[in-house]
Design a protein around this nucleic acid. Structure first.
Ligand SMILES: [Zn+2]
Ligand SMILES: [Zn+2]
Ligand SMILES: [Zn+2]
Ligand SMILES: [Zn+2]
Lengths: 133, 133
DNA sequence: ATCTTCATGACAATCATTCTCATCGCGTCC
DNA sequence: GGACGCGATGAGAATGATTGTCATGAAGAT
């Protein structure tokens, strides 16, 4: 199965988008990234941001979460599987490990005869700063 | 704090909607519930289904999940906190317990100074029937 | 430099969900 | 049983995130 996936071309826009995501500590939506780029003088189009972030997510270059209100947000994280604890107030994000969860997941799959199990595990809370406000 | 929440009135529509959700083993979206009701002769409106299901979810009468493609789906589950293992093919859902996750969540909250932690934990897979298919 | 092909951007189109508002009908109190 | 007040309903418009369209631009290979 020599994959015939099209090569990702290096363009000015993708570089800008990558930089913008990396500059953000918190998860950001395509629209937010687009706004920031526009405000800093870029002329990148919104659809391009959507496409680039999707591609980066598919390639594992960024992590994605779905915000409580349903929007997709992206973040450049540490390599390796992990989960997120996100502040509802300021978006501050902490990467967390859940030792045991992965094996527990495999056990569940076996028990119920499910295959190709994928898990969606995120935590939302209010950070100390935001609690103090 | 004697809550002044408006009383939920019993209407034909809400009864129909409740019955429709309870009749479904799998999670169903408002639109799906609406379609089923319409096909079985009901004249209930789509907005009403959206509103009723939201109210039922807020009241803890049904569980909600967000499907991988972003839609909100509802299901009448067993009382008590639990998570879900959902088949991507047929929607078959298994309620699962994750012993240790809740305490682990509290530990994480304490460690990072986050309060009011809420977790979003769902599993998606392919059930035996759908794998065989 | 040329050519092939993917990438881009402006804009239209989707589509789930929410809003508006005139009307209906529960629940309650005579 | 009948009248009332207010939440509930439904038809349709509106919203808003995301995706599709397509003519044009520009990587990357030759
Ligand atoms: Zn991450
Ligand atoms: Zn915060
Ligand atoms: Zn459930
Ligand atoms: Zn299945």
């Amino acid at each position: 199965m020599t994959s015939t996936e099209p090569v990702q071309r290096r363009t000015r826009q993708r570089a800008e988008i990558r930089d913008a995501v990396e500059a953000s500590q918190a998860f950001a939506t395509s629209q937010e990234i687009h706004d920031r780029l526009r405000h800093s003088g870029s002329t990148v189009g919104l659809a391009t941001v959507y496409r680039a972030l999707q591609a980066m997510a598919a390639g594992g270059e960024v992590d994605t979460i779905r915000t409580p209100d349903g929007q997709v947000a992206y973040r450049t994280c540490t390599p390796g599987h992990h989960h997120h604890l996100v502040c509802r107030g300021c978006g501050k994000t902490v990467e967390i490990d859940l030792p045991g969860l992965e094996s527990q997941t495999r056990a569940i799959a076996r028990e119920y005869g499910f295959a190709e199990i994928d898990h969606e595990v995120e935590f939302f809370g209010t950070c100390a700063d935001c609690t103090a406000g």
